[in-house]
Structures are given as structure tokens and as C-alpha cells.
């Protein structure tokens, strides 16, 4: 009986921690402004979320992910990777949300206006 109670406490604690993480993320989320594309950890492009467009992202090992930005949302429409998980990850619009393709090492992430991408390049 005591073991039973301890089980419930442990499982409740696990669920509570998960809930707290979810709550923190939910409260701190902002509407995105830019779509940042990273390949192998390096930022290769940053597109405004407000402009409808389509891009082909070249990942590692010749992989390609087809990115679509439309109506304030971004998603990967098709990909060369065998599992196609990135396509299944759906549409993203909030800052911090991302679509990740592990085989191609491609990350598409929505970033907030203040932290986001390159706004203006001065000089050069």
C-alpha cells in the first residue's frame, strides 16, 4: 500500500514538472517575426514571416527541404529525407517554435522581432 502511494507521488511529480515546463513556455511565447533557417548549427538565412514565399533549403549530404511561408505560418512541404518527420511536424507561427530535420541537419525556427535575425546590415 505504501509502495502504491509512493508510485502515485512519483508519477504526479513527473507530470507536474512536465506541466510547469509547458506553462513556462506557454507564458513566455511571442508571435514570431522571422523565419530563421539553420543548417548544421549555422544560420544560413532569415526570412520575414509576413511575406509569402517558397524556398529550397540545402541541408547536409545533398538533402533538400522545401520551405513554404504563407499567411504568417511556416512549414516544410516536402523533404528528401526518408522519414519525412519534418513534413509531419506541421505549421509553426510562434517564436521559438521549430521544424527540425535531423537527417539533413536543417532547423527552421520562428524568432521574435527583438531577438530575430539580421534586420539591417550597415556598411560593408
Amino acid at each position: 500500500m505504501k509502495a502504491h502511494l509512493r508510485d502515485i507521488i512519483l508519477i504526479a511529480a513527473i507530470l507536474l514538472i512536465g506541466g510547469i515546463i509547458a506553462l513556462v513556455l506557454l507564458l513566455t511565447r511571442k508571435t514570431g517575426a522571422f523565419v530563421e533557417v539553420r543548417v548544421d548549427g549555422k544560420t544560413v538565412a532569415s526570412y520575414p514571416l509576413s511575406e509569402d514565399a517558397e524556398y529550397d533549403i540545402a541541408g547536409v549530404n545533398g538533402g533538400v527541404n522545401h520551405l513554404i511561408i504563407r499567411g504568417g505560418e511556416a512549414w516544410v512541404e516536402s523533404a528528401s529525407c526518408p522519414d519525412g518527420l519534418c513534413v509531419n511536424m506541421g505549421h509553426i507561427r510562434h517564436a521559438g517554435a521549430s521544424v527540425i530535420c535531423l537527417p539533413n541537419k536543417v532547423i527552421v525556427e520562428i524568432v521574435a522581432p527583438d531577438s530575430g535575425g539580421v534586420d539591417v546590415v550597415v556598411g560593408q
Binding site: 515546463i21 539553420r38 521559438g96 517554435a97 532547423i107
Partner: peptide
């Protein structure tokens, strides 16, 4: 991947 953007995923 050098990213923390998968927090939601977690």
C-alpha cells in the same frame, strides 16, 4: 544541433 528551440518538443 546546437539549439534550444526544441523545448516544446520536450
Amino acid at each position: 544541433l546546437n539549439t534550444t528551440s526544441i523545448a516544446w518538443y520536450l
